[in-house]
Nucleic acid binder design. Structure first.
Lengths: 103, 103
DNA sequence: ACCGTACTACGATTGTGGTCGAACTACGAC
DNA sequence: GTCGTAGTTCGACCACAATCGTAGTACGGT
């Protein structure tokens, strides 16, 4: 499926990109679902989004390249996990406050 | 200059709109400058942005309508203030973490 | 080997957001 | 009153982002 999926290092993560990534309703929804599922992550396809597969791939890429999630291949599927530790270290309280917001 | 400038009530502020508002580099910069100036606010024109007046008006509107800042007329000028209390109440830690981010 | 599943890549379309310039309004000073 | 300053509004333009469909790749099973 793929060679290597590039992820930014913690030090390369930029607040602007993170905000940009979280500002889209589809991506925000995905992140919320991810957070609800706990820390072990979930296959991309298991979270249903109101978009087609190719659009989902697009959004996952934005989230991955901004440093919000990390994606690892697992068989024919891919597991997405929230980069909680990195985000909490860089922007303590950011993720929590966003996830805690009722809507 | 203007009748009333509509601001959302605290209960009407939505996290999506806030993130959307903060996701733009020009607006983020404006918010940072505002925060640096303290809580008494500043006239819109006193914060220089690399855009024209009309673009600035546009950005201020986004920030105001999303609930990030409040704007009150003062003579021929307008004073913008960060809605810190509202944002802190709704999303504790959000603003702090964003403002604390080095870049 | 073949097939199905899971996802990616590419190209095209469409919509939206940021930008500007020009014209307009409101206020204060003179 | 006139003038200048500070912002707004409108229309247009341009760039980018979201969306989709189609075609392609990778992996696991049979």
């Amino acid at each position: 499926m793929a060679e290597v999926l590039p992820h930014p290092e913690r030090s390369e993560i930029q607040i602007e990109s993170v905000l940009q990534a979280l500002a889209d309703p589809v991506r925000l929804r995905f992140v919320r679902e991810l957070a609800k599922l706990g820390c072990d992550g979930a296959p991309c396809g298991s979270i249903d989004l109101p978009v087609t597969k190719s659009t989902r791939t697009h959004h996952l890429r934005i989230l991955r390249e901004s440093g919000v999630i990390s994606v690892r291949p697992e068989g024919t599927s891919r597991i997405s996990t929230l980069r909680r530790d990195d985000l909490d270290a860089l922007y303590p309280g950011l993720l929590d406050s966003i996830l805690a917001a009722k809507r």
